[in-house]
């Protein structure tokens, strides 16, 4: 005789589960609704400019012609520059804290790095405007121009607000995210991997380089992508130091613009329907790009640190 087992024993259980399920279901719903809303609002622009929107550079509210090329370019360049600077630092933090740091140093340093993530974006902006940019102007850019001035990447006059400043600020901001997730990934590497390498006569560095890092590679790549997702969508600090000009130029010393910054600056100024639609399309692009990057990153991180706890910490 088989006994049918009721899942719900009384009304309280059912009400509880239904309530919680309803609350949880709001999250996927929010994701879908946000995407749909942005797409609907952006439609006039998508319809009018088509794919040209992605690579043309004219942004003219007077003649109602919009192209987000410089915004996309600026977003990618500033984020890649940030990754270039942040990844070595963050991996340094993660490797140092999991493999080399003396025990007493691990917690305080990890705490300091976490604090970096707690600093509000706008505070980074203030620091960027009043400390970083003067420092770059006075001490870094003259040196850069002396050594690399011949290359297109460091040509032109440095006005302060620039792709370079944006990239550096972004790098500082994403270091803690990449470091925290990489650290969790490296911690999830079984000790046996390390010991096996050491047992074969590897030095400590060789054990890290040949056993630990390859084992956690997918997770570390995921961590870097999480950082990239942050950088792509970061708004305030970038807006405050990048210069906000619709231009595509090779030089990092020149002002640039990002999608998020354009939204921050121009959204409340958008008076006509097409202007607004163009900005919504920028928002839609930003949304789709960051969701994609984040989704891929999560899948990579989850694959390494099972259970999905790694990187979920709301820093």
């Amino acid at each position: 005789m088989s006994v049918p087992l009721p899942t719900f024993h009384n009304r309280g259980d059912r009400a509880y589960r239904v309530t919680l399920t309803g609350l949880a279901a709001l999250l996927p719903l929010l994701l879908v609704v946000v995407g749909a809303e942005l797409a609907v609002r952006a439609w006039p622009s998508i319809h009018r400019f088509g794919f040209n929107f992605l690579w043309t550079g004219r942004w003219d509210p007077v003649t109602e012609v919009y192209g987000a090329g410089p915004l996309i370019f600026g977003t990618l360049v500033s984020s890649l520059l940030a990754l270039l600077l942040a990844v070595p630092l963050a991996l340094g933090v993660a490797i140092f804290l999991t493999e080399f740091a003396p025990k007493w140093l691990r917690r305080p340093v990890a705490f300091l790095v976490e604090l970096l993530a707690a600093v509000p974006s706008v505070v980074y902006g203030v620091w960027g405007i009043f400390v970083l940019i003067p420092f770059l102007r006075g001490h870094v850019v003259p040196g850069l121009k002396a050594v690399l001035g011949w290359s297109p990447f460091f040509s032109g006059v440095f006005y302060g607000n620039s792709m370079l400043a944006g990239g550096i600020i972004l790098a500082i901001m994403i270091v803690p995210y990449i470091a925290a997730v990489s650290r969790e990934v490296l911690l999830a590497v079984p000790g046996s991997q390390r010991e096996a390498a050491l047992g074969l006569g590897a030095t400590r560095w060789e054990a890290v380089w040949s056993a630990v890092l390859p084992y956690g590679r997918a997770g570390v790549i995921g961590a870097v992508m999480l950082g990239l997702g942050r950088a792509l969508g970061e708004t305030m600090a970038v807006t405050m130091v990048i210069g906000n000009r619709h231009d595509i130029g090779a030089s990092l010393l020149q002002p640039g613009y990002t999608m998020a910054a354009a939204l921050a600056n121009e959204f409340s100024e958008a008076t006509t329907g097409m202007y607004l639609a163009a900005l919504f399309e920028v928002g839609l692009l930003l949304f789709v790009i960051t969701v994609t990057v984040n989704a891929l990153a999560r899948l990579l991180v989850w694959r390494v640190a099972r259970g999905g706890s790694a990187g979920s910490r709301a820093l």
Partner: peptide, 12 residues
Amino acid sequence: VADVLNGTPSIV
């Protein structure tokens, strides 16, 4: 979705 939304730009 929660993890993905966590990385969604706040400006959006």
